[in-house]
Amino acid sequence: MSDFTTGTVRFDPTTVRSAAADLDALADRLEAALSFESPTLSPQAAGTDEVSTTASTTLHTVAASFVAQSGLGVGELRKLAAVVRDQASTFGQVEQSNQTDFLSL
Rank of each mutant, 00 (worst) to 15 (best):
1 M>N: 00
1 M>G: 04
5 T>E: 08
5 T>K: 15
6 T>M: 11
6 T>A: 12
7 G>M: 04
7 G>V: 03
8 T>L: 09
8 T>F: 11
11 F>A: 12
14 T>P: 00
16 V>Q: 10
16 V>N: 08
21 A>K: 10
25 A>G: 04
26 L>F: 14
29 R>Y: 03
29 R>W: 01
30 L>F: 10
31 E>V: 02
31 E>M: 03
32 A>Q: 08
33 A>T: 12
34 L>V: 05
36 F>E: 15
36 F>R: 15
37 E>W: 13
38 S>V: 06
39 P>M: 02
42 S>R: 12
42 S>P: 03
43 P>I: 01
44 Q>N: 11
52 S>C: 04
52 S>R: 04
52 S>L: 02
52 S>N: 06
53 T>M: 00
54 T>I: 10
54 T>Q: 14
56 S>C: 09
56 S>T: 07
58 T>F: 09
60 H>R: 15
62 V>I: 15
62 V>W: 08
65 S>L: 14
66 F>W: 10
67 V>M: 06
69 Q>A: 12
70 S>W: 01
71 G>W: 01
72 L>A: 07
72 L>R: 09
73 G>R: 02
73 G>F: 04
75 G>P: 05
76 E>T: 15
76 E>D: 12
78 R>L: 06
79 K>A: 12
80 L>E: 02
80 L>W: 02
81 A>K: 04
84 V>I: 09
84 V>H: 01
85 R>W: 07
86 D>T: 11
90 T>E: 14
91 F>E: 04
92 G>R: 01
94 V>T: 15
94 V>K: 14
95 E>H: 15
100 T>D: 10
100 T>L: 12
102 F>W: 14
103 L>N: 14
104 S>H: 10
